[in-house]
Amino acid sequence: MNKNAFIISVLLAFFACFPVLFSNPYWIGVLNDIWLYAILGLSLNWIVGHTGLFNLGHAAYYAVGAYTAAILSTRYNIPILWLLPVAGAAAGLFALAVARPIIHLRGDYLAIVTIGVGEIVRIALENDIFGLTGGSNGIFGIPRPEIFDMRIRRPWQFYYLIGGFLLITIWFFYRLEQSRFGRALNYIKEDETAAEGSGINTAWYKLAAFVIGAVWAGMAGTLFAAKMTIISPGSFNFWESVLIFAIVILGGAGSIPGVILGAFLLVGLPEFFRNFADARMLFFGAAMVLMMIFRNKGLLPPLARKYAGVPRVKGGDA
């Protein structure tokens, strides 16, 4: 425990000082991407890692959030950060409408249907749905975010904005994970019939988990729109969903540190291998296959929750 607290403090201090120590905007930009994908990964982790619902269309909710923020901020000049809850709510409502009829599907069936949802959203955006999304060119001229009259433009400023939101995300999901809500989702993942038979409203919890994950992806979409100032459907394609999914599985489904590590590896490492761009996908494909064989719970699998007063396990580290 103390060891973990120490490691966390050192990492926090290091990353808090990073932009001061290394003022290289390129690497700060890379970290911004990592933070963003860590947020997305944690939001999907709630659905996939904790509840065991195979959602392979998470980019759809990310897109709904990004476009909601982009449309409202460009048309009505609403400061984009105010739109965080609005974009989250839009993504959540969309998820509620989509998930309600499909959430009872099991495993691979749900995976296939969610891929379909992701594609439908992308195609709708490309076809300039309701004349709002700008077709395949997307939306540009999204205003920069402002905090206390400070205009957020430079990478280091985004670094603290997105990094701060990541900290809130970690805190939010950590607290939920440690509550009866988190336990209920884990029971469902383990054995849905037994969970229902023990008194857990499985249908409600599955839907709630899905919607909360989508809300969070929608808010991540707002940050993305604010950072890019231009968004287009290409940013929300099937591979985006696969990447977020892979971050969760590689790092360790159900584990917050695991998902963050997954974001570092899948978003950060490719930047080191820019010169071998072609071999990159091959490398990651092979890494995933090896991992599934040798470490199928991910690199940093979740730790069991601790309960005060429960007898210590002999020889264990609990």
Partner: peptide, 25 residues
């Protein structure tokens, strides 16, 4: 037998407590 095999014994029992609890998100 339908237990939550990968969870601890105490968490298995807490599943039964769930419906007598109320705390929300």
């Amino acid at each position: 037998i339908r237990l939550f095999q990968n969870m601890s014994v105490v968490e298995n029992v807490l599943a039964g407590c769930h419906c007598r609890m109320k705390s929300g998100i």
